[in-house]
Simulated scan of single mutants.
Amino acid sequence: MDGSLPDEATRDVGGNGFAVYVHVPFCASRCGYCDFNTYTATELGGGASRDEYAATVLRELDLAAKVIQPRRVDTVFVGGGTPTLLSARDLGTILEGVDRTWGLAADAEVTTEANPESVSPSYLRELRSAGFTRISLGMQSSAEHVLRVLDRKHTAGRAPQAAQEARDAGFEHVNLDLIYGTPGETAEDFERSLRTVIDAGVDHVSAYALIVEDGTRMAVRMRRGELPYPEDDVAADRYLAAEQALAAAGFQWYEVSNWARRDAECRHNLLYWTGADWWGLGPGAHSHVGGVRWWNVKHPSAYAQRLADGVSPGHGRELLTAEDRHVEDVMLRVRLRDGIALARVDAAAAARALADGLLEPEAYRAGRLVLTLQGRLLADAVIRDVIA
């Protein structure tokens, strides 16, 4: 109840890097495809307030400080939800709390997600002054009819405009997110979206195939026959188009769904993908320290009440075995451009993948498993086969 961890989990906290994730669970409206732990004003009920949220997160930080003391905080990522529904001052207050509690590294990467319509030039300048260095904007598409299917509220032109405003405000890195394979999206629509992100002058692009999650409005519409289900072949074609356009514009893939210009990779996500420690603040946030993973209660009211009562908001946890950690490490590292040492995977399965053209021969000869473009299309299958 006090959030304490086993001694063996806290012996070298942050030895491989330490990150802080802050979950902001508020949204102005719910997108049709979204199954994240987010709440609109009508869904919140009593006991949860945006105005008091920063103070509530600081209470969890007070608890966390009694549990671990990492060497430093390398990265902070504020996600949601729509973090920028909070005031820039509140986001700055949370960041100050992280620095006061554990100490930000001098070169810490500090990211917030944002919906394009939720920020303005003055808001972005205030965020930058508060210490945020990176912003990730949810563009999804440059086609108005695709945005309508996704239940997005911004116009097609707002995302690139917000990206320019972020650059003008002094953000070191700006990302635009894309979703491909939405019902009704044409190849031409996606090509225009790619051209829009390239022309926006950003240094990072994330592109994800639409996944229809049970319980979402979009899933209901598809079951009713109002929308067709996404097609795997279409998703593959979109991915190939993304690789071609982004590579030609100077971006390089470094994770299956992420491309960046030189030195613009998201360091926070790389810490996740390479097995670092992190503390997740906020309702429903997940954490991992020294082979222990835990997650907070999901509803903001329950989260706030637990902290007001002076107890951990943790809802459950698991102690990862050596085998668990190996499997997760392979699952994540195979998706990276750096790949994984061949000694850590099944040799026969890796040889088959090489013969099928799914692995880079030069990397293979150097003792590493690195996916080819075709291998990236079949990454999940390769991972299943090579887990030793």
Rank of each mutant, 00 (worst) to 15 (best):
C31E: 03
V197W: 09
Y239A: 05
P6E: 05
R72V: 14
S257N: 10
A285I: 13
R335A: 03
G97V: 03
V174H: 04
E188I: 14
R195M: 10
V146N: 04
D107E: 14
G80E: 01
V345G: 12
E113L: 01
T133N: 03
L86I: 09
L176A: 10
P83L: 12
E362D: 12
L58V: 01
R50W: 05
G280E: 03
Y303M: 12
Y53E: 00
A114K: 00
S29L: 04
L240E: 13
I68H: 01
A187L: 15
I94Y: 09
P83Q: 12
E172H: 11
S136A: 07
A143Y: 05
S120Q: 03
N115Q: 11
S118N: 13
A207H: 00
Y303N: 02
Y180A: 06
N296E: 09
R238Q: 14
V67M: 06
E323T: 15
P300I: 08
A349K: 06
V67G: 06
E43N: 12
A349M: 01
A242E: 00
R11L: 12
D214S: 15
A55W: 00
A379C: 07
H326E: 09
T182R: 01
L369Q: 03
A355R: 15
G97R: 00
A355K: 14
D309C: 08
L176W: 07
R261C: 05
W273C: 02
R365L: 13
A276G: 07
P230H: 05
R59Q: 11
G138Y: 11
E52M: 00
P25L: 11
R376Y: 00
T82D: 08
N115H: 09
L127A: 03
G375F: 07
E323R: 14
D233W: 15
P6Q: 06
C34Q: 07
H173L: 14
A9W: 08
I135W: 01
D62G: 14
A163I: 10
A348I: 12
K66Q: 14
D324M: 11
P300H: 02
W295C: 10
V327A: 10
V220F: 14
C27H: 05
H154V: 09
S129T: 14
R335C: 02
R158P: 10
A235F: 07
L95C: 04
A207N: 04
A249E: 08
L104C: 07
V76M: 02
T111N: 07
G314Q: 14
E323H: 14
G375S: 12
D168T: 14
Y21R: 00
A347D: 04
D107H: 12
A106W: 15
T93H: 04
G92Q: 12
Y180P: 06
A285G: 04
A108L: 08
T56L: 06
T82G: 01
L332G: 08
P116W: 11
T216Y: 05
V292L: 11
R134V: 01
T155I: 08
V57K: 07
D385A: 15
G250I: 01
G181H: 11
D309V: 07
G103E: 08
D35W: 04
A248E: 13
V234R: 13
Y208M: 11
T10Y: 06
Y229S: 15
W273I: 01
S136K: 07
P183L: 06
G367C: 07
F26E: 08
L377F: 02
G45E: 06
R158V: 10
R261Q: 13
G310A: 02
S120V: 10
G201R: 09
P121I: 00
P160C: 08
